[in-house]
Computed example of a mutant assay.
Amino acid sequence: MFLAWLLALLAAAGALFLGEVMGKPPCVLCWYQRIAMFPLVLVLGMGLLSSDARSVRYAMPLAGVGWGIAAYHLLVFWGVVSEGLVPCGKGSSCADADVQVAGMVPIPLLSLAAFTGILVALWMARRRAKA
Results as ranks from 00 to 15, higher is better:
69 I>E: 01
4 A>L: 03
43 V>M: 04
96 D>M: 09
119 L>Y: 05
26 P>R: 09
109 L>T: 02
118 I>N: 12
65 V>D: 04
110 L>P: 02
95 A>L: 04
130 K>V: 14
91 G>C: 12
58 Y>W: 13
88 C>D: 10
21 V>Q: 10
61 P>H: 04
105 V>I: 15
82 S>A: 05
44 L>I: 05
46 M>N: 05
122 L>D: 03
62 L>W: 08
69 I>Q: 01
112 L>G: 08
5 W>G: 12
114 A>C: 10
22 M>N: 11
106 P>T: 07
114 A>K: 10
7 L>Q: 02
51 S>T: 05
10 L>K: 12
83 E>Q: 09
125 A>K: 06
107 I>L: 15
12 A>M: 07
71 A>L: 15
97 A>W: 03
17 F>V: 09
15 A>M: 07
17 F>N: 09
29 L>G: 00
14 G>P: 14
57 R>P: 00
12 A>Q: 03
11 A>E: 14
17 F>D: 10
43 V>F: 02
62 L>P: 07
114 A>G: 09
68 G>F: 01
121 A>K: 03
126 R>I: 00
72 Y>F: 15
7 L>R: 04
17 F>M: 08
15 A>G: 11
25 P>E: 04
12 A>F: 07
48 L>Q: 07
9 L>H: 01
100 Q>Y: 03
108 P>R: 00
58 Y>L: 10
93 S>I: 00
6 L>Y: 06
23 G>I: 06
20 E>F: 11
17 F>E: 12
127 R>V: 00
85 L>W: 15
126 R>Y: 07
36 A>Y: 08
42 L>Y: 06
130 K>E: 15
103 G>D: 09
129 A>L: 02
10 L>N: 10
38 F>D: 10
